[in-house]
Simulated assay, not measured.
Amino acid sequence: MAYPDDLVAAVRGQLGLDGAGRLLDVGCGPGSLTLLLAPLFEAAVGVDADGDMVAEARRRAAAVGITTIDWRRLRAEELPAGLGEFRVVTFAQSFHWMDQPLVARRVREMFTADGAWVHVHATTHRGVDGDDPLPQPRPPWDRVDDLVRHYLGPVRRAGRTVLPDGTQSGEEEVMRQAGYAGPARIDVGGGQVVTRSADDVVASVLSLSSSAPHLFGDRLPAFEADLRGLLDAASPAGLFSERTREVGLVIWRP
């Protein structure tokens, strides 16, 4: 699901942005956040380790006519990579996959004097659990999770590895040890009702590192057929409603 509309205004207001400076979005994926924030800056750079993500980001930028973003296939651990200085560096749902102490130290060298690091904490693949009435049924997420475990086993997968204890924690300690001050915290969005198609839900499931297409191997067609069967049983019309979750902005200063 898209980031909330008020995220841009919150970042602009909290950081006092005036159109100057450059943005670096680390782990940019298909550019969802980069494209939102790029108009707040003179120029932007989006980096991601996955070449297909970078290609999709370029395609989406071209489709909306944004030409101020330089897209690079690059691992965060390779920074600063000669990219120069930035007024804002963002990490949206990405920092927990990285060598956090190393990345925090290297990025600290890349800020201008008024620079800020922004973590964007969000769950955009699914909405808030609840039983309040909505225009369409909610996606049957519990049954979807059970189906993923049926195919991939009980231990959560993460791309080419596993996460028996979940993703990394201790982010604040990492940032303090790397010399950052803060943080300031803002919550934006949340509570909006959105309508999603069955295709949207399938795409959300397959976008996760824990249920990425390659994990299923030659069983992917069977998994997708079973997933669509679950969704069809939950909503024969193929439409679902969800309430969006809050997005948390955590801002550090170098």
Rank of each mutant, 00 (worst) to 15 (best):
D132W: 05
P133M: 08
L134H: 02
P135S: 12
P135D: 09
Q136G: 02
P137D: 01
R138V: 03
P140F: 02
W141L: 05
W141E: 08
R143Q: 15
R143F: 12
R143I: 01
V144L: 08
D145S: 09
L147E: 07
L147A: 01
L147P: 09
V148T: 12
V148N: 07
V148F: 06
R149V: 03
R149Q: 08
R149F: 00
Y151T: 00
L152A: 12
G153R: 14
G153I: 11
P154C: 04
P154H: 11
V155I: 15
V155Y: 11
R156N: 05
R157Q: 09
R157T: 08
A158W: 02
A158G: 01
R160K: 09
R160T: 08
V162E: 13
L163W: 03
P164H: 05
P164D: 12
P164F: 09
D165T: 10
D165F: 09
G166T: 15
T167M: 11
Q168E: 11
S169Q: 14
S169L: 10
S169E: 15
S169D: 15
S169N: 13
G170N: 07
G170Q: 06
G170D: 06
E171A: 05
E171W: 06
E171P: 00
E172S: 14
E173H: 09
E173N: 04
V174L: 04
M175R: 12
R176Q: 11
R176G: 02
Q177C: 02
A178F: 08
G179P: 04
G179T: 07
Y180G: 03
Y180T: 10
A181N: 06
G182A: 07
G182W: 00
G182S: 07
G182F: 03
P183F: 04
P183T: 13
A184R: 07
A184F: 03
